[in-house]
Write a protein that binds this DNA or RNA. Structure first.
Ligand code: FES
Ligand code: FES
Lengths: 143, 143
DNA sequence: ATTAAAACATGATATAAGTCATATTTAGGA
DNA sequence: TCCTAAATATGACTTATATCATGTTTTAAT
């Protein structure tokens, strides 16, 4: 579904959304442990996200990564698009090609509603939305 | 979601379900082209499935792979379990670990119902069921 | 029996995904 | 200004997945 890289990226971003702010930046190595991802790896992913303005960062002393108000409005789909490419989610369950509504494969009928709904949710829900769920105890960040 | 190998395996099995029978066995190399999978690769996958009694085969002249009445009753989930392992589908969207209903991750609420549904469908629907859909024109085998 | 056609078993290679290491640039503080 | 802490850029390494190749065993026909 998602690659490991996307999973890691999502976890890292949500972690930042909950625990960081413009005045409380977090070092890559300090994100690594709580989300259980090798630090050199998460650093690389965060750099990629930073380049696409999905997370914010400043370097030098007292630098680090953080999520600002603008980042908070970004939908989750942007994260997985940057890491996995835009249309990984559109691939047919039986083929490397894209899913095709006109010529549905045998699994299409019981897979497509799922995928469509998931994609819509990823477009609709922002980083901030998810952070709120975590803060209110409705959901949790897995290791 | 599924690995390419599982996709290929599913396609090959469904192809056999539609076009083969005990009296009409099909060679690995003749399955390869219509489902668009390298022949050495599909041969290997079919051998694995044969070892698990998901497809039938006989060797020697006039041999080949086929689906018999017993194979026809096998649910789709068995195919992907053999190729991808039993619990690839249960992994949490954000973690390599398994999905956990007691401590749902932020994506759980809009992913889990559908995944559960998908898994149930894979358990409920057999190879024969899918073949019937193809034969009746309700669905198609993708390249 | 001999031969040929096929699956079967095993392993080698290639490509992609994931992980690690190092050098460079930027920014803040002494 | 100089030093240090951090992100950044780039590339090397490792592991897993996907693909290919080769030899062996089984079966049926002659
Ligand atoms: S055509 Fe296969 S999932 Fe839609
Ligand atoms: S806990 Fe993440 S998908 Fe269920």
């Amino acid at each position: 579904m998602f690659s490991n890289s996307s999973k890691y990226a999502l976890k890292a971003v949500l972690y930042l959304a909950v625990y960081s702010s413009e005045s409380n930046k977090i070092l890559a190595k300090n994100i690594s442990e709580p989300i259980n991802v090798p630090q050199a790896y998460i650093a690389k992913l965060l750099q990629e996200l930073s380049r696409h303005n999905i997370v914010s960062s400043t370097r030098g002393p007292n630098g680090g990564f953080y999520i600002n108000a603008q980042n908070r409005e970004i939908p989750l789909i942007d994260i997985v698009s940057v890491i996995d490419g835009a249309n990984r989610l559109n691939s047919c369950l039986l083929s490397v090609q894209n899913c095709n509504n006109e010529k549905p494969c045998p699994l299409h009928s019981f897979a497509d509603p799922f995928r469509t709904d998931l994609i819509n949710n990823l477009k609709k829900n922002t980083i901030g939305d998810m952070a709120k769920d975590i803060e209110s105890g409705k959901s949790f960040l897995p290791l």
